[in-house]
Amino acid sequence: MSTFSVVSALWLAACGSDRDPLDSATGASNGPTGGPSGGPSGGPSGDPTDGGTSSGTDTGGQSHGSCEQYLECVAVVSPDALPTAESTFGPAGTYWQSSPEVAQGCIDSCASSLNTFGMLYPEEPACGGGGVGTTGEPTTGWATTTQGSDSDPSGGPMTTDVGPCTDEPGHPQDGACTDSSGCGCSSGKCFVVPVLGGFCSECLVDADCDGGGCTVANPLAGVGAACNDGGPGDGCQSDAVCSDASNDVCGTLYEVPGIITVSTCGECETNADCGGQTPVCAPKYDLANFGGRFDCVAQGSVPDGFGCQNDAACASGHCGSASVMGLLQFGACGECGADGDCSPGEQCVGPEVDLDSGQVFGATCQ
């Protein structure tokens, strides 16, 4: 099964089953959540957000439990993600029209996410914190670590004491973990991606690595975050860790706000980074590995079905946006941008992502 078949199944299972999808990924039902590239998960029992899982689950007017507070939290700390969250967990969400078991799966997912947002934003009352509000920036960077971490305190995450460890100790690299403190990992670092799982990792941030960047965890393949040399396509947080002189720009390829951001070293991120005979910046996707990079290309040189950010890159002159479940967007060159670009009697069918093959297909006239 391809990477994107897995992500589709996990996202659907988050509210489409009476079994928590994280059971198979982490061995526990405490789901992770956090900031743009992973964040803390789990938490001691008795956390003020834990009680949400016991609320009513039918659609007859009962409370949707922790999902109500979860949406309030998202509205404050990650407003860009609110429309997607509301379409799934809001009062009109389709999952509430299903069985009580499905609804309980939604509430469990909300509780897991809210629990971790409460840890990531401890000063935000909307997320269960005791402070007076937040500007929307997490107080702990990408994720949190335990005492004894070798992360650079000036550039990495803050040290946080979250109480007793919820994981068994000694898990190896790539092993499943639920406690964002990293107490269950031999490395002392648990990289957690909301909904999709936590994995023992070499790093949480670039500062954890020596001479390179941190490639974020690939929860779809069950691979933890790892340090790299800063070469083309390697993960990064900033340009500073990109070591190849011709691929020294850290650009964001994929992003689900509030869930994960995948940035890699490449030649560019926008057209402003390019010039000469190759003035257009275009993404080169590696969906199977949840990676890729940006390259500078000649105007009108990208064929249909390959990545683009604007029409200038495409041989056809048409760059469209393909969506995966409304969460991930991929620019792809195609035959058309509207029905008027097609022959009489034909319609322009928008670009798509094939979840079985992990391929992006441009728009076509049909």
Rank of each mutant, 00 (worst) to 15 (best):
D208V: 15
P219V: 07
T270I: 15
E255P: 06
D295L: 08
A221H: 12
V280L: 06
F294Y: 09
V241H: 07
G291Y: 11
E255H: 08
T252Q: 12
A225V: 12
G198C: 04
C250Y: 07
N218A: 06
Y285M: 09
D239S: 09
V192L: 15
G198I: 03
S263Y: 02
P219L: 10
T270L: 08
P303R: 01
V216A: 09
D273Q: 08
E255D: 13
N271V: 08
C185R: 03
G182A: 01
C236M: 09
E255W: 07
V192F: 11
D286V: 06
P283C: 06
T252G: 09
N271E: 07
P257K: 05
G197D: 12
G233W: 09
C214G: 06
A272E: 04
V249W: 02
Y254V: 02
P194F: 08
C296D: 03
A225Y: 09
G300K: 08
A298D: 09
G198R: 00
N228Y: 10
Q277S: 15
D206L: 01
L287F: 07
C274Q: 03
E255I: 07
P257Y: 03
D234R: 02
L287N: 08
E267R: 14
C200Y: 12
C200I: 03
S263H: 01
A225N: 12
G258C: 12
A221M: 12
A288S: 12
G275Q: 14
S186T: 13
T261S: 11
C183Y: 14
L196Q: 14
D273N: 11
V193Y: 05
Q237S: 09
T278R: 07
A282S: 10
P232Q: 06
S186P: 12
C214A: 13
G184R: 01
G188P: 13
V262H: 12
S201G: 06
G258V: 11
Y254A: 02
F290Q: 08
F199P: 03
G212L: 00
E269F: 13
G292L: 04
C214D: 12
C268T: 14
G233F: 13
C227D: 10
C190S: 00
D248T: 01
G224M: 05
G300S: 13
G224K: 05
I260F: 15
S263T: 03
D244S: 14
D248R: 02
A240S: 14
V193N: 02
G300W: 09
G258M: 14
V195S: 08
T261G: 05
G188V: 03
G212N: 01
